[in-house]
Write a protein that binds this DNA or RNA. Sequence first.
DNA 1: GCGACAG
DNA 2: ATCTTGTCGC
Length: 218
Amino acid sequence: MKLTFHLSHPWDVTLEEAERIQNQYRHAVRIAPLAAEQLTCLTAIAARNRQDDILVAAVTADVVKHTTEIITEREKTTFPYHSGYLAFHQAPAILKALTRLNQLGDVIIVSGHGLAHPRRFGLASHLGVLLDIPTIGCARRLLPSNELQPSEDPLMDWVIDAEGVVGIAVYQQNSKNPWILSIGHRTDVDSLLTFKYLWLKNHRLPDPFNLARRLLRA
DNA sequence: GCGACAG
DNA sequence: ATCTTGTCGC
């Protein structure tokens, strides 16, 4: 699929330049509601490194059309992993993988953080802003810039930073480790709650996010 | 008692 | 991400 870039910048940069880019592009993040009807076709992205390569799995699952598309990709990375700079490590490979998808979801679930990031510009926000598409971040752990705040729902916490709420933490099946969902781009907290509802309720179809993560084991 | 900064 | 394969948590 031909990707349309709303913004672009070099990826082969120094750590200092990367931080500058994050501080510049973070202002392009838009917080907006996503309706449930816009959550029927999801694309999930997961990536990990192997030596100097990034392995990417992308899955698009359309609940209405009842289709699932799976792509795996491998691409060299030039930027080593540093906490807070995951996008510079993985995004080029992820973008290459997205190119190979025939269908892109209404919203992209990205393995990593969105606004739950020291500069409010994690991988999910970064990808969303570049392509100007709705994204949600989904990560296993919090970065130190953020913390949890209990909600009325015992199975859910708010994810906050010094400025306010940036996401939700979801405790699945009484697990002590929550999944950290955060706003990426063109989504909001309500979108996350809607997504959580659909995600936990819909066991009929393969969960694209879990599928993408599983694919990285091969 | 040792570590706890996404992947 | 991975190595850890019975044990939790401030």
